[in-house]
């Protein structure tokens, strides 16, 4: 016999993601899914963000990592609550993994939860984890062809942080071409050229975060 099914393969993940999202909504916490290749500078961007905003926004970090606690250790130095999820080789975080650690965060006392995903431009794009927005970090050394090679992650991300622009003069990265490609894949996506090392451009990133947090707070208090 043949039967029609028409069921989404990642449907179970999406159900749990919706539960996570409902919890973040009830607590008025802005949840950010931070994506990017290994070495793009996700953790460094987070470190700068914590140093700049931790007295202003009540933050916590969930660190996805294959096996180690190296990133979580870096985050912990800033006195921000951090929870480590080891995927044991898994290439992405999924919604149940995030759900399993949320009880360990005091969401009532938070404005912002940043979930740093496993370094990868492919798999994490397919798995919603209950975030409000995704942001992807693309570094200059990865090359300007990456948006068109990995379109889904750029389509899914509200913000593209182009990191390490301080070394632009030493590379053949075409900032204009990359920005244009991102704009065709995701019209309206915000592209922020920054250098976490020199702190150039980071103000715009902080402003985006501040506004996102504020919108989340107000959106549910009306």
């Amino acid at each position: 016999m043949e039967i029609q099914v028409m069921q989404d393969i990642l449907g179970k993940n999406d159900e749990v993601a919706a539960e996570n999202q409902a919890l973040f909504a009830a607590k008025k916490v802005f949840a950010l899914n931070l994506l990017g290749s290994p070495g793009a500078g996700k953790t460094t961007l987070l470190e700068k963000t914590m140093a700049a905003l931790k007295d202003e926004l009540r933050m916590a970090v969930i660190e996805g990592d294959l096996f180690t606690t190296k990133d979580a250790d870096r985050i912990a130095r800033y006195g921000v609550p951090v929870i480590q999820i080891n995927t044991s080789g898994g290439c992405h975080l999924d919604a149940p993994m995030v759900q399993s650690v949320l009880p360990r965060l005091d969401l009532d006392a938070l404005d912002l939860v940043v979930i740093e995903n496993v370094g990868n431009l492919v798999c994490p794009a397919e798995f919603n984890i209950g975030e409000d927005e995704k942001a992807v970090v693309l570094s200059i050394t990865e090359g300007d062809d990456k948006p068109l090679k990995y379109p889904l992650i750029f389509k899914e991300s509200a913000v593209v942080v182009l990191n390490k622009v301080d070394i632009l003069p030493y590379t053949n990265f075409n900032l204009e071409a990359a920005t244009e490609d991102i704009a065709t894949i995701h019209p309206g996506a915000m592209v922020l050229p920054v250098s976490s090392t020199t702190e150039e451009g980071l103000f715009a990133w902080y402003q985006w975060l501040r506004q996102a947090v504020q919108k989340k707070r107000e959106g549910y208090s009306e």
């Binding site: 016999m1 028409m6 393969i9």
Partner: peptide, 10 residues
């Protein structure tokens, strides 16, 4: 789409 469309079973 990432979807199971149909099944053939016996």
């Amino acid at each position: 789409e990432l979807r199971v469309e149909y099944l053939e079973m016996e």
